[in-house]
Each structure stands twice: as structure tokens, then as C-alpha cells.
């Protein structure tokens, strides 16, 4: 699709959440550009607004004010269907608690986005899934259910699922928070490797200093504002 220009552009983005009679402002005037191919960490303490920012970039939430452009689309202008399509075609998601479909095995979980896309035939899908399973080192677990896997293995499935449809941007919200630090670092390394090999842009959030250090670029936020790392 759009090959040129930054993958994400945030311009003076604000996000308010109504909370009872008051309003919680989760993001206060963030401006940020992410270039294609970047491997970027969003760092900050708990409650600083990392998840909110990723939601805005991931087209699962809309800004209260300011402009969010993802892969050339002004997300405020897209309707529900357009946003779903954008997520399906251009974005990949990795979650803190893995969020695999419990009733599907490893292969089926990874295949899932391809099935939703309805673009590839069975053989092509299998080839794709097998390839990515190999990349994340899960070939042997293809028939296993998520419940039978370790945390690290589950997150590898999630990474494979996020990448199988070859998205332009992968968003990962604290992907290592539910893992021990050694496994966490290996997961980040895997992501880094895939970033290098495929040129996929990664934006991940973390509050773990060890993990942040693996990023090419570090953007620190606190209290809904960028405090370090804006370009």
C-alpha cells in the first residue's frame, strides 16, 4: 500500500476518558512520528498513557483532539469498517497476556488473520504459517493448544500471529510483562530479528529498563506527555 512517508504521525493528540463526573486525561498533547522500519520502545511508569497511545495508533480508539495518521490514513475519518480493515491488512498486535484463541491450536491461531483476510488459498496459508512457525521456533508445537504451552511459547505464537499477514506495523503492549526477564529478553530479541529481516515496524511499550535497552529508539512518556525522545 503506502510505501512512502512515516508509518505513524501523531499531532498534538489528546485523549480524555470520562470517569464518573470527572474526566481523566490519559494523553495530553503528544506529537510523535514513527518511521517505517523503526524498532521503537514506548517507556514510562504504569498509568503514564502507554496503552492509550498504542490504542490510538492501533485504531482501536479515537483521539479526543489532535490528529492520528496511520499508514497514510487519518484514523478520525475512517468508519468502523475502515478501521477494522486497516487493522486486518496493515497492523499486527501483540498483547501483554498473549490473548490467543483458547479453542484453536498453535497452527490455527497463527492462521487466523489469514482466514479473516480471505486472500490466500489453503496451501499458501499453510506455507506462510509453517514458515513463520519455524522463524519463532514453534514448528514442533503446531498441534498444541495454548493451554499446553509456556508463557514464552505463547508469546511466540502471538508474535507469529501478528506477523503472518505481513503487516506494516506491529504494536506490542508490554509484551514481556507476563514473562520472566530472561524469556522477556529473548522475546524482544526475536522481535528485533524479525524487524531486521522483514523491515516490519515495531512499536512496543514497557516499563522494564532492561527491555527498553533493546530498542533502536526510546520514547519516554510520563503523565500523558512525551518527556524524552521526540524527533
Amino acid at each position: 500500500m503506502q510505501a512512502a512517508g512515516p508509518i505513524v504521525v501523531l499531532e498534538d493528540v489528546h485523549k480524555d476518558y470520562p470517569l464518573g463526573r470527572t474526566v481523566v486525561t490519559a494523553v495530553r498533547g503528544v506529537s510523535l512520528t514513527v518511521q517505517r522500519g523503526e524498532f521503537m520502545a514506548l517507556a514510562g511508569p504504569s498509568g503514564s498513557g502507554k496503552t492509550t497511545l498504542l490504542n490510538l495508533i492501533g485504531c482501536v480508539d479515537t483521539a479526543t483532539s489532535g490528529r492520528v495518521t496511520v499508514d497514510g490514513h487519518d484514523t478520525a475519518r475512517l468508519k468502523e469498517k475502515g478501521l477494522t480493515k486497516l487493522r486486518l491488512e496493515r497492523l499486527g498486535f501483540i498483547f501483554q497476556s498473549f490473548n490467543l484463541v483458547a479453542v484453536l491450536d498453535v497452527f490455527q491461531n497463527i492462521e487466523f488473520p489469514l482466514l479473516l483476510q480471505k486472500k490466500l488459498g489453503k496451501a499458501e496459508r499453510a506455507a506462510r504459517v509453517n514458515e513463520i512457525m519455524e522463524r519463532v521456533g514453534l514448528s514442533k508445537q503446531a498441534k498444541q493448544r495454548p493451554a499446553e504451552l509456556s508463557g514464552g511459547q505463547r508469546q511466540r505464537v502471538a508474535i507469529a500471529r501478528a506477523l503472518v499477514a505481513r503487516p506494516a506495523l506491529v504494536l506490542a503492549d508490554e509484551p514481556t510483562a507476563n514473562l520472566d526477564s530472561e524469556t522477556g529478553e529473548r522475546i524482544i530479541d526475536l522481535m528485533r530479528e524479525l524487524n531486521r529481516a522483514e523491515g516490519t515496524t515495531f512499536v512496543f511499550s514497557t516499563h522494564d529498563p532492561k527491555i527498553m535497552n533493546h530498542a533502536d529508539r526510546l520514547v519516554r512518556i510520563a503523565d500523558g506527555r512525551v518527556v524524552e525522545g521526540t524527533n
Partner: peptide
Amino acid sequence: KEIGTMRAIGA
């Protein structure tokens, strides 16, 4: 959560 995940992924 599962439904949200499917929706996020593109369902």
C-alpha cells in the same frame, strides 16, 4: 477479552 482480540486482529 477473546472477542476484543479477534476484533483487534481484524474480525
